[in-house]
Nucleic acid binder design. Sequence first.
DNA 1: CGCCCGATCACCCATTGGGGTGACGACGGG
DNA 2: CCCGTCGTCACCCCAATGGGTGATCGGGCG
Lengths: 155, 155
Amino acid sequence: MWRTILLSAAALALAVFALEWLEYRFWARTIGIEAFIAIVGAACIALGIWLGVRLTRQAPPAPFQRNDAALASLGITPREYDVLLAMTAGDGNKAMARTLGVSPNTVKTHIARLFDKLDVSSRVQALERARLLRLIPGTGDAQGDMADSRPHPDG
Amino acid sequence: MWRTILLSAAALALAVFALEWLEYRFWARTIGIEAFIAIVGAACIALGIWLGVRLTRQAPPAPFQRNDAALASLGITPREYDVLLAMTAGDGNKAMARTLGVSPNTVKTHIARLFDKLDVSSRVQALERARLLRLIPGTGDAQGDMADSRPHPDG
DNA sequence: CGCCCGATCACCCATTGGGGTGACGACGGG
DNA sequence: CCCGTCGTCACCCCAATGGGTGATCGGGCG
């Protein structure tokens, strides 16, 4: 960001020297000093727009940053957080246990603790609350032709 | 958007006339023509940056618009959609039945049909897919001090 | 009119999920 | 050293869920 600003300053200085190179006096006499300044102004405005666009398009695709404060505030342990992430896949306890390399009973225990700490009583509620607290990323970014990939053969 | 561009053109024209008003000749003789042009260029760059920033920040607050195409493509009926929305609350079938004013068995049937049409096998997966297809709004917009509202009295 | 479809409800059944309790090894701080 | 915490696992219990089948009723359409 600041790099871009410094770049703009450098570009401005360059433009001043470019004036000499362009022999502005010649152009000023040929097309008039006002027109010359107007052209310079237009060029600078274009440069500014480019800079402005460049400066503002950085944050939008925020890659999601976890709310560690809430995580600590709720006393959610790292392992419980792993289970929470695994829960987002919508799989059953058995599948989660396999992916985490533990017993289904352990997964159940972690989920029970999560429910207690998140103050909920179902997986859906837990995920909703976790998303609300920015513990896990929100879904639904990629889209497109998927809607047509299953033209509903049944009723 | 185009309004802004037209505004910029008007601003440029105004600037040209402003040159006269500023008696650029006086300033040009006082501080040198290069410096004067540089100042004008800087002002124009600032204007351009402002324009660029203004041009690029408009869309973000998209209030979510339902993907009726996908809805129809999957053959999801209005009632089934109601059930889908009720499912987002994370309540059980009994509670959903109460809010929808039908029998729990009916809710079960609708959910089974939804699972079939969405090609999933659990509530979490159904909601994830529904969000992916923009059938229901994504959660997690409002946030703030909620993270501190439960300073984890337990372990 | 007869048919199909959406909506509603009922029933059965096996699996899963939620809730509770107990236990054990490891690790770190008082 | 002892205690608390974390991670792991086991067991029980019961309600909820997922899956399947069948039935009724009303409305739209050929």
